[in-house]
Design a binder for these strands. Sequence first.
RNA 1: GGAGAGAUGGCCGAGUAGGUCGAAGGCGCUCGCCUGCUAAGCGAGUAUACUGGGAAACCGGUAUCGAGGGUUCGAAUCCCUCUCUCUCCGCCA
Length: 422
Amino acid sequence: MLDARFIRDNLEMVETRLRTRGEGVAMERFRQLDARRRELLQESEALKALRNKVSDEISRIKDKSQAQDRILEMRDVSQRIKAFDEELKGVEEELDLFLLTVPNIPHTTTPAGTSEADNVEVRKWGELPAFAFTPKPHWEIGEALGILDFERGAKLTGARFTLYKGAGARLERALINFMLDLHTERHKYVEMLPPFMVNRESMTGTGQLPKFEDDLFHLEGIDYFLIPTAEVPVTNIHRGEILKASDLPLCYVSYTPCFRKEAGSYGKDTRGLIRQHQFNKVELVKFVRPADSYNELDKLLANAEEVLRILGIPYRVIVLCTADLGFSAAKTYDIEVWLPGQNAYREISSCSNFEDFQARRASIRFREDDNAKPEFVHTLNGSGLAVGRTLVAILENFQQPDGKVAIPDALRPYMGGLEKIG
RNA sequence: GGAGAGAUGGCCGAGUAGGUCGAAGGCGCUCGCCUGCUAAGCGAGUAUACUGGGAAACCGGUAUCGAGGGUUCGAAUCCCUCUCUCUCCGCCA
């Protein structure tokens, strides 16, 4: 959420910057509502001041019959206050809804663009594997090895659900543990295991609500949602809190399953593990001082890249342009992993700086000193990494001519010493 | 699911026959004093949001005692609804 006062004072600039996202914003409506809100507020508060003053006088009068005229007068004043407050409530509700549906302002270093084609490659890492045969897509490898069962996944639940079997299940679990160990032990993140369903306030805090409810699984009979990413519960850990500056930056890592409806992507990625309604992810989340946030974003990105470097899987990093940027983000790097079976790079991590956008929604603040005014922190997060897609990358990059799949050295201890699947 | 108890400022904890309570007291914290060296003592200060004025320092107003309604000239205090926490019973991993 943007600061209403900031919008008020920088209306044109905000409008211009938001337009680079390809999104028109009803700034004129904001201007009207904002002005009306302050008018009503002043009227109401002036009357309240009067009522407080006179009520105080009434309290000093011993013989209440002497105060009848003032009591009657204040009875009328209270009615008028009520009328103002009712209109005010309506205006504020509309204003809040407006503010909650305005996306974040892109950072100045986010490249301008009109579509994802304008995303900019930042770097490439690793050599693309050369195969003496035509590399297979992971779903063929997985089915041939008996470690991925798409048919039975669909039988159990439906489309976009998969059953992992045997070494496949073990590999998924190995990846989770490997990533958690790397980030906690080497990168010094603190591990969190949060609830996998959250309430409406949490979803609003990170920006999934009110705009993107259609993408979320909602429970029947209780107003909870399955999390689409650990970002939601983990960022909301400190919702409504004032943190100590000495505790910053707070760096958390969290494994959770993620649940997404994938509404609007019906024809896309229907085969394989790429786009599932349920997938595993290890997420990195940071709460930092505003001045440090872009430096911290670089470090977070490097921490995520480290996973692929250790596994030895080629990838590239791109920076999203204004048109491709997510709703809450000011700047985002995507890590795209090389998938030989598809002869393409595919997203495996998205690392973003939200600046104070989420912190303002969720009221997450810190004090620089004990007597300083609270300021909003900056929040960041990034996948470190999407586990299912990492498994895909392993199957496709390390497939052998005989149909087996080599397990990267770093994962072997997590696989009971297994060197190959198959 | 049944029965009961509770929710107050950074923390602990007063305050319910409605008014002088943004709220005692303690702790913590900040600044200063004192003390010949990290203790004790003394003094002052110490919530947040919105809003008006001001270049600013700052000054004024309103709101906030779990949340939302209600009664009243006036509510932390009375009434209703909800949420959460704790205890006991049942159930369960």
